[in-house]
Each structure stands twice: as structure tokens, then as C-alpha cells.
Design a binder for these strands. Structure first.
Length: 295
DNA sequence: AGTAATCCCTGGCAGC
DNA sequence: TGCTGCCAGGGATTAC
């Protein structure tokens, strides 16, 4: 479940390793990942293109080449890892004892490796995605206005766009649970289940509170908490719970610092009561019932 | 229109 | 041991 801090960590790693490289050949093995154009056309279009820029918006990565913009969403289990021709493949996938994570620093193409870029210098970039929830879309710059999945995104947390005034405006007239609003990418882009739960804990807000019931003071706490938990996630290289790995195949370290997510039955770090897990809008939510009251 | 439910997918795990 | 069924969840789609 790569969220903003994980995607940004991957982006930074990729900038160091694949920026300005030229793609010789693209191989698409799983066609459902490629939403546009047709997979064979994407292979053809990206051949001989150079990677000029790698950006990010919310949970999307945006690769810019000479003639195209490539929008990648990693879904639940997408991994984009650089394959270094001077390194040996690490074929021993193993389960991390703490995170249950599948780990491989540099992997050979396996049945989950759905797309590969082979560069002219002999290196490669592999896209591996066990659950196949990731999505790739290729646009010409003049078509990019059609990329509604991009333009519909809400406030960008680490940008000057993330202001208290704009944040507050998003609550107007809405009638849903605060947890659902946090997961809505048109509200604040890049927040997923882990950081939503962490932000609600830090703001002392119960996930099932209706947004209309929140006082400005609580909204203010949430505004700050979102930015704080995302920054912390980024600082520690992302949260590796299931399949997240950075661009060089390494796990993050933020999972050890989480206050509620994945800690069902464990003691609240603040009040020592047990953390519970409930279902809110079909999604699991982790919270401390004492620190996050309903009222 | 805004919100809620359904579906996609695989590996890991509990239960038998 | 090996099978079955369930669960995780982002976002597109469908339903209300």
C-alpha cells in the first residue's frame, strides 16, 4: 500500500538511478496494467525515449520523456525497482519476520514482473505488482488534459497549496465519516489507510465522526497531523507493511513507529489502553478508543 | 450530486 | 499434509 511517503521515497531513488537514461525496449507482460494506449502501442511509443523528469502528485508517479507523459499508480502492491547490471540478482524472496514483507533487493523477472524498461546502457527498471491493482497510462503532452485521474486530485500535502484555508473549505456541506473523507484523493492527495489512521490518532479524532460534527479546533489538529505523519513516514523511508520496497528494493522503517495502524490488541503508546480495529466504509480502521472519543 | 457498495487480484493464513 | 475459504485494500465503476 504505497502512500505518499512511499511513492516519494521511490521517486527520489529513481531520480538518482534512471533520470536521463534512454529506453531501448519496453516489455509489457501483463496487459491489464496498461490502461492507455493499447499495451503494444505503449511498448512502441516508449522505445528510444529518454527519461527527462520524474515527478509525483499524490500517489501518482509522473515520468516525462521526450514525447510523452507516463502516469503510474502503484495500487496496493506495485514495486518499481532499478536493476543494476553490475549487481547479482537476489533470488531469495523471503518473508520479513516483522512486516511479512516479500523482499528482494534486485530481482530477476518473475511471474509478477509485469513491465520492464531495458535501457541502452544495459540496466533495467522492473515493475512488479502481485495483486495487479497498479495502473499505467501514457499521454502525449497535448492529451494530458484528459488525465482526469490526475486533475481531480485534491490538496498536495508538501506543497504551498496545502493551506489551512483550502483544507477547511473541503468540509463544506459534506456528510460522511472523517475516515472516508481522508481516503478520498480529491480531498488531500496521497493519504491512504495507514496514514489516515495515524493522522486521526494524532488529532484525537474517532474515524467514524461525521465531518459536520468536527469543531474547527479538531480540523486544525487534523490539518497539522496529516502533514506531520506524512513527513515522518518520508523521513523513515516509508512504511513497509506488505509489499512496499523503494527503488533499490529496500524496506522502509516507519512501520516500527506507527501508533495505531496494525497494532490491534497492543497498548496505546499514549494511554496504555488496547488499540482496536473496526470497519469503517468497508476499510479497516485502527484506533485507541480512549484517545479518540466519538464526541 | 454526493455517498455507499461492489469488484478487481494474489498470497498468506486459519481451520479442518 | 493439503485443501478451502477468507482477508487485505486503492480506486473505477455501479447503485442508490
Amino acid at each position: 500500500m504505497p502512500e505518499l511517503p512511499e511513492v516519494e521515497t521511490i521517486r527520489r531513488g529513481l531520480v538518482k538511478r534512471v533520470l536521463n537514461k534512454t529506453i531501448e525496449r519496453v516489455e509489457v507482460r501483463c496487459k491489464r496494467i496498461i490502461l492507455r494506449p493499447r499495451p503494444v502501442e505503449l511498448e512502441r511509443a516508449l522505445a528510444h525515449q529518454s527519461i527527462k523528469e520524474i515527478g509525483r502528485r499524490g500517489k501518482f508517479l509522473l515520468f516525462e520523456t521526450n514525447d510523452y507523459k507516463l502516469l503510474i499508480h502503484l495500487g496496493m502492491t506495485g514495486q518499481l525497482t532499478f536493476w543494476d547490471k553490475t549487481q547479482k540478482d537476489d533470488n531469495d524472496f523471503f518473508v520479513h519476520p516483522l512486516t511479512g514483507l516479500q523482499k528482494a533487493r534486485q530481482h530477476a523477472v518473475d511471474k509478477h514482473t509485469h513491465v520492464s524498461f531495458y535501457f541502452t546502457d544495459g540496466n533495467a527498471l522492473h515493475y512488479r505488482d502481485i495483486r495487479q491493482f497498479g495502473k499505467w497510462r501514457l499521454y502525449r503532452p497535448d492529451e494530458f488534459e484528459q488525465a482526469k485521474e490526475f486533475w481531480q486530485l485534491g490538496l498536495e500535502p508538501f506543497s504551498p497549496d496545502y493551506t489551512w484555508k483550502k483544507f477547511l473549505m473541503q468540509f463544506d456541506g459534506r456528510k460522511l465519516k472523517i475516515k472516508s473523507l481522508l481516503l478520498d484523493q480529491s480531498f488531500v492527495a496521497g493519504v491512504g489507510n495507514i496514514y489516515a489512521d495515524e493522522a486521526l490518532f494524532e488529532a484525537g479524532i474517532h474515524p467514524e465522526r461525521l465531518v459536520g460534527s468536527l469543531k474547527d479546533e479538531e480540523k486544525r489538529k487534523l490539518f497539522r497531523a496529516i502533514s506531520r505523519v506524512l513527513r515522518r513516514g518520508l523521513k523513515y523511508g516509508g512504511t513497509s507493511f506488505q509489499n512496499y520496497l523503494n527503488a533499490t528494493g529496500e524496506a522502509g522503517r516507519n512501520q516500527e513507529r506507527l501508533k495505531v495502524y496494525g497494532r490491534e490488541g497492543e497498548k496505546c503508546r499514549r494511554c496504555k489502553d488496547a488499540i482496536i480495529r473496526i470497519i469503517v466504509s468497508q476499510r479497516s480502521s485502527h484506533l485507541c478508543p480512549k484517545c479518540q472519543s466519538r464526541r
